[in-house]
Amino acid sequence: MALMASTRREADEQTLPIWVYLVLPLLALGLQSLVTLHFSHFGLLDLPLLVVVYFGTARRNPVGATLGGMVIGILQDALTHQPIGVFGLAKSFIGYLAASVGAKLDTDAHGSRLLLTFCFVFLHNGIDWVLMSHMLARPMGWNWILELISAAINAVVAVVLFALLDRTRSQE
């Protein structure tokens, strides 16, 4: 930890190897699109969103997390039947929020990761629903129980995935 750091972000800045920034989003997008074709319940898990949340909380850079969320979201839109930009907008907002919260709070503890990821996934699903139902006038159902289950599944998977990804970090 730096002795003269003026903010939490400067004190705890950690980097990931460049291959993680390239391979992880592509792997998440590929798994999400391929596995969902064969197992429809896998759609409850949003791997690209978990990547956006991890990168946001790990780097603590709101601009980078917003751009990363936008790129990952637009690529996910291209692989789904969603209109281009819906996931891009939702994931860029979540990336910004994750990086902003990561700069202020300790997001390395498992409990905070579980709670934050649950909230981020639920908010992401809500943004997706608002954009599709109200702004694009495309009928999309909202099932509270299913959305809470989805958020819980994503939060539990995130804690395990984030712990594995932490092993690739290097301190600056």
Score class of each variant (00 low, 15 high):
residue 12 D to V: 07
residue 14 Q to C: 09
residue 14 Q to W: 10
residue 15 T to W: 14
residue 18 I to S: 12
residue 19 W to L: 11
residue 20 V to N: 03
residue 20 V to M: 13
residue 21 Y to G: 02
residue 23 V to Y: 09
residue 23 V to P: 06
residue 24 L to N: 02
residue 26 L to C: 13
residue 26 L to N: 10
residue 29 L to K: 06
residue 29 L to H: 07
residue 34 L to P: 00
residue 36 T to S: 15
residue 36 T to L: 11
residue 37 L to I: 04
residue 41 H to T: 10
residue 41 H to I: 11
residue 42 F to N: 06
residue 46 D to R: 13
residue 51 V to H: 01
residue 51 V to S: 02
residue 52 V to Y: 01
residue 52 V to A: 03
residue 53 V to W: 04
residue 54 Y to V: 01
residue 55 F to D: 04
residue 55 F to G: 00
residue 56 G to E: 09
residue 58 A to W: 01
residue 62 P to W: 08
residue 63 V to A: 14
residue 71 V to S: 12
residue 71 V to Y: 12
residue 79 L to N: 09
residue 79 L to P: 03
residue 80 T to N: 04
residue 82 Q to K: 14
residue 82 Q to Y: 15
residue 85 G to A: 12
residue 86 V to Q: 08
residue 87 F to H: 10
residue 88 G to N: 08
residue 90 A to G: 09
residue 91 K to W: 08
residue 92 S to K: 05
residue 92 S to R: 07
residue 93 F to M: 15
residue 99 A to D: 02
residue 100 S to R: 15
residue 102 G to E: 02
residue 105 L to S: 09
residue 108 D to L: 11
residue 110 H to A: 15
residue 111 G to F: 13
residue 113 R to K: 13
residue 114 L to N: 03
residue 116 L to F: 15
residue 118 F to Y: 15
residue 119 C to A: 15
residue 119 C to K: 04
residue 121 V to D: 05
residue 121 V to L: 09
residue 128 D to L: 14
residue 129 W to G: 06
residue 130 V to I: 09
residue 130 V to A: 05
residue 130 V to M: 03
residue 131 L to T: 01
residue 132 M to I: 06
residue 133 S to F: 12
residue 135 M to L: 15
residue 135 M to N: 05
residue 136 L to C: 02
residue 139 P to D: 07
residue 140 M to L: 12
residue 143 N to F: 12
residue 146 L to V: 13
residue 147 E to H: 14
residue 147 E to S: 10
residue 148 L to H: 03
residue 149 I to D: 07
residue 153 I to V: 15
residue 157 V to H: 06
residue 158 A to D: 02
residue 158 A to R: 01
residue 159 V to E: 07
residue 163 A to R: 11
residue 164 L to C: 14
residue 165 L to G: 04
residue 166 D to C: 08
residue 170 S to I: 14
residue 171 Q to E: 08
residue 171 Q to G: 01
residue 171 Q to Y: 08
residue 171 Q to M: 11
